[in-house]
Simulated assay, not measured.
Amino acid sequence: MQGQNLHQVAIRAIFKRMDEIAAQCGDRFPLFRPSADSLWTLSRRGSWLGGFWAGLWWRRAAYTGSAGDHVVAESWSARLAPSLREPSINRSFVFWYGAAIGHQQSGKGQATDQLANQAALAISEDFNPALGGWTSGSGMGAGELGTRALNVDALAPTLALLHGYGGSEESTRAQEHLQTCLRQLATEHGAWRTNAVLDANDALKQDVAGTWPRGQAWAMLGMAEAVRLFGEAYRQQALQACAYWTERWGGTSQPAERTGLQIPPQDLSAQVISATAMLNLSRLIPGEHWLYQQAHMQISAVLDVSNVAETGQFVGHLYHVKADHELLVESACATFFLLENLLNL
């Protein structure tokens, strides 16, 4: 089974898996599940992953046209509201994927529209003029270090949420944050750092660029959003980030020589996030056919090494289940981006 048929089989398998997860989790958000014989770690509020669970249902509702799926998506979005008060930039993950995309797809959904508006304004209030952007913030488990860290992960949903659901001030701040990230986290050859941390003297200490594939993938997604929202000025930097990814992590195995962190090859979440970025860019920059081809190759490889088409389970997210312990898990985040690619391809 190849091409579109395999994609359609995998899409239906993911939808079936969503029903199974919902039956296990009740009214709590599923965060992650380490293995086939373990239970889901659940959350009433959803942490930063909750928006992806709601987002999966919005994507499903758009695909099936089912009124029942739409109701389920709306109900999960409504449960995200307590996170509006969380002091974290990762609220943009929650409310872009969990509310804004639902409003955009349905063309109605006043409640989701209001949630997205409220989130954009709440995040905007935490803007740091001295930094020229947002730190990660102390919420969602980041602690004190988060108040001093400029981080790349939430760049794409922050740009999208503030530009799309804030006013002119929020859009201006979003672009200023983008410029700060480019200045502090990007390099001229396309590799991105994950963090820059303020020390006691307010100087930014940067980590090594290009060492963490998922960080590079988040950067690519952010730059694709920058091109969509702000245009040609960000085209070259977006393409450079994708070219760096393709050269270093274009397959599903890691290069022999690594710098810094030792990343196991199984972190397929980085593959699906980067593929989403390249597919988005391929629509925005005509003629760059390699972006589509690379994304297609990566998703085919992910389907080859996983059993998603049979079970709907995508155990592809390398996740800190404890402070000092990373484990490969099933998560709504990784599954969301895999589904996004399957639908787009």
Rank of each mutant, 00 (worst) to 15 (best):
residue 206 Q to I: 11
residue 211 T to V: 12
residue 188 E to Q: 13
residue 169 E to K: 11
residue 218 W to T: 00
residue 77 S to W: 00
residue 107 G to M: 05
residue 129 P to Y: 09
residue 192 W to T: 12
residue 190 G to T: 12
residue 182 L to F: 04
residue 154 A to I: 03
residue 85 R to I: 01
residue 128 N to W: 11
residue 176 E to K: 12
residue 110 Q to A: 10
residue 97 Y to P: 01
residue 153 D to G: 10
residue 181 C to K: 15
residue 212 W to R: 01
residue 110 Q to T: 14
residue 79 R to C: 09
residue 113 D to G: 09
residue 181 C to I: 14
residue 204 L to A: 03
residue 115 L to H: 11
residue 88 S to I: 04
residue 98 G to W: 05
residue 187 T to D: 10
residue 118 Q to Y: 08
residue 160 A to L: 02
residue 134 W to I: 01
residue 214 R to S: 01
residue 168 S to C: 12
residue 81 A to R: 15
residue 168 S to A: 15
residue 183 R to Y: 14
residue 75 S to F: 12
residue 118 Q to V: 08
residue 159 L to S: 02
residue 112 T to I: 04
residue 110 Q to E: 14
residue 179 Q to K: 14
residue 108 K to N: 15
residue 182 L to T: 13
residue 94 V to M: 08
residue 201 N to S: 11
residue 211 T to H: 04
residue 177 H to C: 02
residue 209 A to T: 05
residue 210 G to F: 01
residue 128 N to M: 05
residue 195 N to T: 03
residue 103 H to I: 07
residue 100 A to C: 06
residue 166 G to P: 00
residue 158 T to S: 04
residue 93 F to G: 03
residue 85 R to E: 07
residue 114 Q to H: 10
residue 125 E to I: 07
residue 84 L to A: 11
residue 205 K to A: 06
residue 164 G to C: 03
residue 145 L to I: 14
residue 86 E to P: 09
residue 132 G to T: 10
residue 118 Q to D: 15
residue 109 G to D: 06
residue 122 A to W: 08
residue 81 A to T: 10
residue 172 T to S: 07
residue 111 A to F: 10
residue 88 S to H: 05
residue 192 W to C: 15
residue 93 F to Q: 08
residue 144 E to D: 07
residue 128 N to A: 09
residue 160 A to S: 06
residue 167 G to K: 02
residue 180 T to K: 13
residue 167 G to H: 07
residue 177 H to V: 04
residue 188 E to F: 07
residue 166 G to T: 00
residue 97 Y to F: 12
residue 161 L to M: 02
residue 137 G to I: 00
residue 151 N to F: 08
